[in-house]
């Protein structure tokens, strides 16, 4: 299992709610200022989690951003300021700006999912939903355990085939045949094993009583406070959005609500919400370096 950072050590409910909020708001709010704030927060946390490789992956997203930006006006011909004609259709400035906005939303979402995959690992998901969907959580846990096992077994089968002179071969056809033979042997081996496992589970009393589960994660006071803070900030963002502080129309005419006066509160709440994991990460790193200095 990967080393978790300060935010990753929180209760899975905190992690899950944060990503629901971050990704949900990120996809729904089109306002460019909010988008920029989201991109900044997502980028910072992504780099904190992925270290030196993070830079490279973020740079790899840039061509995608440019491509999506340029493609969008081809399919959205509304707008007032025509830049030039493509195939007899107008290519407008408004549609280009809209395209950049949509592409930005997509990239920010990819970044948040990159963080999600680091933080919300399989064990956290099953411990979060284990009480609501016990059979399906058990299924997932079994799959997580079986996949590495089956991959190992398929290597074992291939090695056994090599030792009797049935190596992989060089042509595509030979590789395909060898692969199919391995897959076929793998499935019969795994199926026979599954029946034994199932009977063993039944013999030990699976399904005779309600399943209890070992909880690795406990709700602490800190987790409760975090949940309350996140809900308060999220509600503030929704409130400002309902009052129209985040309205943004791009085509046919640019109509973007100004971020001033009371609607600054919405932006502040949004940024505070998104910076929660970064703040926790940095606080832990700072504490660690201070306590190292004391030695």
């Amino acid at each position: 299992m990967m080393e978790q950072d300060a935010f990753g050590k929180c209760h899975p409910a905190v992690n899950f709610l944060f990503f629901v909020g971050a990704i949900g708001f990120g996809v729904l709010i089109q306002h460019p200022v909010y988008l920029a704030a989201g991109a900044l927060c997502a980028g910072i946390y992504y780099m904190l989690l992925h270290g030196a490789q993070g830079w490279k992956r973020i740079l790899q997203l840039l061509p995608l951003f440019v491509l999506l930006t340029l493609i969008n006006p081809l399919f959205n011909i509304q707008g007032e300021r025509v830049l030039f004609d493509v195939f007899g259709r107008p290519y407008t400035l408004e549609a280009l700006i809209y395209g950049a906005d949509v592409a930005g939303i997509f990239v920010v979402m990819l970044l948040w999912f990159g963080c999600y995959n680091r933080i919300l690992t399989g064990d956290k998901f099953t411990s979060l939903f284990g009480n609501w969907i016990p059979a399906i959580s058990l299924l997932l846990v079994m799959v997580f355990r079986m996949v590495p096992g089956l991959m190992g077994k398929s290597k074992q089968i291939a090695a056994a085939r090599r030792s009797v002179g049935k190596g992989v071969g060089t042509s595509t056809r030979q590789k395909l045949d060898a692969g199919m033979a391995v897959l076929s042997a793998l499935i019969s081996w795994a199926l026979e094993g599954s029946v034994v496992t199932g009977d063993s589970m039944r013999a030990r009393g699976y399904g005779t009583a309600k399943r209890t589960s070992f909880q690795l994660y406990r709700m602490t006071v800190r987790d409760g406070l975090l949940l309350a803070t996140m809900m308060f900030l999220g509600a503030s963002v929704i409130g400002v959005a309902v009052m129209g502080g985040m309205g943004a129309e791009f085509t046919p005419r640019l109509q973007i609500a100004p971020v001033s006066g009371w609607s600054v509160l919405g932006l502040a709440a949004y940024c505070l919400f998104l910076l929660i994991p970064t703040a926790m990460h940095c606080k832990e790193a700072l504490q660690w370096s201070i306590s190292k200095l004391k030695i």
């Binding site: 299924l139 079994m142 079986m146 094993g193 599954s194 029946v195 199932g198 009977d199 589970m201």
Partner: peptide, 11 residues
């Protein structure tokens, strides 16, 4: 679902 069905689907 019975244990056998669960394991079968997982496999």
């Amino acid at each position: 679902p019975q244990a056998r069905e669960l394991v079968l689907i997982a496999v």
